[in-house]
Amino acid sequence: MSTQTVIGEGHVERPPPLVRWYAEHRRAVFGTLVAILFLLFWEGLSRGWWADALRPLIGHAADPLLVPPIFISSPSRIAAEAWRMFVVTREIWSDLRFSAMEYALGLGAAIAVGMPLGLASGWYRRLSYAVGPFLAGFNATPQVALLPLIIIWVGFGLAAKILIIFALAVLPIAISAQSAVRTTDARLLKVAHSFGAGEWHLFRTIILPSAVPFLLAGLRLAVGRAMIGIVVGEIFGSAVGVGAMINRSGSRFETDKVFVGVLVIAAAGMLLAELVHQIERRVEAWRPSV
């Protein structure tokens, strides 16, 4: 009912095309407009447009509307800095390569450990009882607090970064895998049982296929969580990596560079989440859309 409107009295003609186009893309139109206004406002703050415009009216009360770029940078400065780092000096590429490697290894390890553990504890009730307290405790802990321990164990190197990314990503994966098995449709299990399916066969033909959407949803969560690891893992004395670059630039008040780094990580996060989402849509083709 939401996509159709009742035609009221005296309004039987359909609306003109422009109005219809707007009605259909209202969200996008609004969003773009708001985004552009926001960027303009930001740019104006750092260039003093608003302060200059209002000074004749309200005098020095307008001064706070000029914010030095060292605090907030500006869209144009960020764009220029990004151009410099990606194209002119190409300095960001080595950081990207390093971060991508630690990310891939950390997330890979989280999948390799989290999925089997989650699936098994969903399937074997007693195993879930055994690991339950550990999962609950680990889940309640801000995993980043483990960083000092990790550094004691493996030092400042690549291994520490991989481990912190692993620690952040493993839980969403394990927990979603566990609940995936648990919420398997009992009717399907009954059908399979009545056909005399063995345990392993049951797992492979019923549990696993119906678990895939959950696993992917967990993965999508984990992709975002693991991004935190890039920044946090490189807090301490890392020389390379996007996170290290952000931290270094922050301590030198190079705000433009910080924003470039933040945006790069955000973009990478969105890209990966979208990738998982696309896979989800492929896999879920058999399922009625909601």
């Binding site: 609004f30 969003g31 708001v34 946090v232 952000i246 630039s249 945006l263 990580i265 955000a266 996060g269």
Partner: peptide
């Protein structure tokens, strides 16, 4: 419509990366 873009954008950024700023 007004706040959606900001919320989506902020949600997409891992906020902890903003720490230095």
């Amino acid at each position: 419509y007004l706040l959606g873009p900001f919320i989506d954008a902020l949600n997409a950024v891992p906020r902890l990366t903003l720490m230095p700023i």
